[in-house]
């Protein structure tokens, strides 16, 4: 589960662990927190809540949850929102996974929190079942890409496959592009696997690799793309 590559432990769909997944919800809207809590399945145990950057860092350090559901926009701290929470909990990143949750689908919000270290991003409008699914996936070490995030990735990395000579961090491989395209088209991991005749585990590997590139790449176009959208 701590595999950085995030290949998951079982490799078939969302993993339903024997013990409940311990989760902290960080969001400044109490209404949203309680709504989300009610929506999550019983196999998710909400062990803490926080409304500001400082509270979040404190609660995460104290509870050491497996997954943090993290709103991108948060009051407090230095104004960095979710990004700052992740930075403040950097020492826990090996055991605690962050799933960004945002009402905003602006590229700068999403990509900045992903680059800070979040393992995935979902919009607040998705259903409780989908969020539960995403929590299991992130807890299992996988990345969670919404169609929109896949769209951002394709936009940032370009839609042409990598040459062999390219720095591997700076481009997506042909297979990764295919996976991203299918996710952008609304395919679930399972459907992607079926469409490409590969295993779900392989899909997860590809998605995790893309996430890693998104987080680490200093590709010229990516920085330019980010600068144009005022991310840097």
């Amino acid at each position: 589960m701590n595999n950085v590559q995030g290949t998951g432990i079982q490799g078939t769909g969302p993993i339903r662990p024997a013990t409940p997944v311990r989760v902290v919800i960080v969001d400044d809207h109490a209404i949203f927190r309680s709504g989300l809590k009610a929506d999550l399945s019983e196999s998710i145990q909400v062990v803490g809540e926080a409304a500001t950057v400082e509270q979040a860092i404190a609660v995460i350090a104290q509870e050491r949850p497996e997954v943090v559901l993290l709103d991108v926009h948060l009051p407090g701290g230095l104004g960095g929102g979710g990004r700052e929470v992740i930075a403040g909990s950097a020492s826990l990143l090996a055991t605690t996974k962050f799933l960004a949750l945002s009402v905003s689908d602006a590229a700068e919000d999403v990509v900045s929190v992903i680059r800070a270290g979040a393992r995935g991003y979902v919009t607040k409008t998705i259903s409780g079942a989908e969020i539960t699914d995403a929590v299991f996936r992130v807890a299992g070490g996988d990345a969670v890409f919404s169609p929109r995030l896949a769209g951002f990735v394709l936009d940032a990395f370009g839609t042409a496959p990598a040459d062999i000579a390219d720095d591997e961090l700076d481009r997506l491989s042909a297979r990764e592009l295919e996976v991203m395209r299918l996710i952008a088209r609304g395919y679930s991991y399972k459907e992607v696997a079926k469409e490409l005749f590969i295993s779900i585990k392989t899909v997860e590997t590809h998605v995790s690799a893309v996430l890693r590139k998104l987080q680490l790449s200093s590709r010229h176009e990516l920085t330019k793309w980010a600068a144009e959208r005022r991310l840097l």
Binding site: P147, G151, L154, T159, A160, R181, A184, R185, G186, Y187
Partner: peptide, 19 residues
């Protein structure tokens, strides 16, 4: 249910997927 629409323009070629 939710309809997913994906539009990609690459080198002038346009593709749209509606799922």
């Amino acid at each position: 249910g939710t309809v997913s629409v994906y539009l990609e323009v690459s080198d002038g070629r346009t593709e749209i997927f509606i799922k």
